[in-house]
Design a protein around this nucleic acid. Structure first.
Lengths: 160, 160
DNA sequence: TGATACAAGATCAAAAAAGTCTTATTTACT
DNA sequence: AGTAAATAAGACTTTTTTGATCTTGTATCA
């Protein structure tokens, strides 16, 4: 139930490229070193990103990768799903046949709805947002998790 | 990036018990058969649910499981997290040390926020909702995924 | 034409998930 | 008390997924 390493690497890669600016050629070696990604692994991820049209790969000596699209047009969802496939919270959502009664199943509907919500959220964040936020604004102290505690624990009466 | 089978089974188990009514004793065998869960696997899952105080386990001949709480007080999130642990969309959220610059990282903040949103959504669905919806209301034709298509594909200009 | 850089698929290793097995304990019934 | 029926608990096994590397091949520049 979490992002895979490949997904994380893809995000790092695109973010690094976004920071350099669209169209700027960067060697795989540099990205791997700077973003802390195993070189060969990055190669495979990059190929997926290229197939998706997000980056362009230049071969040959002094080859490398560069961002093909404007960072404003690349969303977090896009990059993540390019690498890990469409996000499914539950098998039954992705493969209806795995759940014979999915049309009747109330739980099924909840998963569908929640999943869409999640995907929409990720689809609203662009790499322009991410890059600028990271270059400019300082940490925005406490804008993160600490301020968004998990839903309050239900006050269970405790095991009888 | 999806619910594990154990999580799915836990939901099925609790839902089945919720349909029978709170406090009604049901044998593990029956649950396993009706909800299509491997018996031994169910045993382990049930133990976790019991530890959490959601169900009660009765041993001995004519033993079985029963719902300890009112279905209105059990949320989908609770059941799921009881079995698979707290939901993390990304490693860096769960273990800040795995991402040295999490305070600066814009992506990190997005994951945090989105994760909270997801968890909140699941926390708002109770098993009373699920059970009643399944017993009463018919399929609500097309209230599901089909009506909630994935975020429109960004119109990528395609690989140059 | 050789050195450098990426491509692409095969392969390997480690981790997680899914399920099973075995032994022990608890309870009901006779 | 003794036996059968039910679950407990943890070890163990198998399968799948993930993460990463290796190898061979192709493209480009000097």
């Amino acid at each position: 139930m979490r992002l895979t390493r490949a997904g994380e690497y893809a995000v790092r890669c695109v973010l690094y490229l976004a920071k350099q600016g669209r169209g700027v050629l960067v060697s795989r070696k540099e990205i791997a070193a700077q973003a802390d990604i195993p070189g060969q692994f990055l190669a495979k991820i990059a190929q997926q990103l290229a197939r998706q049209g997000i980056i362009e790969i230049l071969q040959g000596a002094s080859g490398g990768y560069r961002l093909l699209l404007a960072p404003e047009r690349i969303t977090l969802l896009e990059v993540v799903e390019t690498v890990i496939g469409e996000i499914f919270l539950n098998d039954c959502v992705g493969r209806p046949e795995s759940c014979p009664n999915s049309t009747v199943c109330a739980v099924h509907r909840v998963w569908c709805r929640t999943q869409q919500q999640l995907r929409n959220s990720l689809d609203q964040v662009t790499f322009a947002d991410l890059a600028s936020e990271e270059l400019g604004t300082p940490p925005t102290p406490g804008a993160c998790c600490a301020e968004n505690p998990p839903p309050p624990e239900k006050d269970l009466p405790g095991p009888a």
